[in-house]
């Protein structure tokens, strides 16, 4: 590409800074982070609390914007996008999996999976079929008309994964996705991530648990708003 991006880069951080204004003092949460995530990679982003990993996740997920530097998704810089364009980008290119599942309680499983589709300009023909396939894929075939409160934590997280995948995003962002689950259920969820990775999905997993972080191909370790180390797991 003309601006020098790496051809297979899905997310590119160029000297990204994020400064918070606390009264009269400014607190830098990210202090010059440069990194390129490539298609099909499976990363975990680790660091102690205060290391800036939540801020980085917000920026990677396009819910927040850097105050300095540039972040590009699929070669497209986010700093010049309007709020609507940013929303569109989130819906189309990013899939979120949150620690506390964040399903919408009024909707049943099928409707929850379809939420990102609702915000597209047009309702595609494949949507409902794909939602059913994804539900089956994460092991929820029989529970499509259940509402979130009727499901266990592990089941809710499966719904969230199916929801994250419905628009076939280029990046799957998981924020402490196993943090609220017992180790056996957490393992099941991580297995789904392994499978998705094997299928070629780009996964960025934010965690502070080292045994979770070690499931990924590579670990990006943050400290005080900078990249501290990059570790290859295999």
């Amino acid at each position: 590409m003309s601006d020098g991006s790496t051809p297979d880069a899905v997310a590119e951080l160029v000297d990204v800074r994020r400064v918070y204004q606390m009264g009269t003092t400014t607190v830098p949460a990210l202090d010059g982070v440069s990194h390129t995530f490539r298609r099909g990679e499976y990363w975990s982003i680790m660091g102690s609390s205060g290391s800036g990993k939540s801020t980085l996740l917000n920026i990677l997920g396009c819910v927040d914007r850097p105050t300095g530097g540039e972040y590009k998704v699929g070669g497209r810089g986010v700093s010049t996008l309007t709020d609507d364009e940013l929303s569109e980008l989130r819906g189309a290119s990013l899939g979120f999996v949150f620690q506390s599942y964040n399903l919408i309680p009024q909707l049943n499983v099928l409707e929850n999976i379809l939420v990102p589709v609702m915000y597209r300009d047009e309702w595609p023909d494949w949507a409902e079929e794909r939602a059913r396939t994804l539900a089956e894929r994460v092991g929820l075939a029989g529970r499509l008309d259940h509402r979130p409160p009727e499901l266990s934590g592990g089941q809710q997280q499966r719904v969230a994964i199916a929801r994250a995948l419905i628009n076939d995003p280029s990046i799957l962002l998981a924020d402490e996705a196993t943090g609220n689950l017992d180790s056996r259920t957490a393992d099941e969820i991580l297995e789904i991530f392994d499978e998705l990775h094997a299928e070629g999905k780009t996964i960025l997993l934010v965690t502070h648990e080292s045994d979770v972080g070690e499931r990924a191909e590579r670990i990006l370790r943050l400290k005080d708003g900078r990249i501290d180390a990059i570790v290859e797991n295999r």
Partner: peptide
């Protein structure tokens, strides 16, 4: 508020 945040993260525009 949280539901609004979730929807926004999942691609909802302000007008939605």
């Amino acid at each position: 508020t949280r539901e609004i945040g979730i929807r926004r993260a999942l691609g909802a525009k302000r007008r939605h």
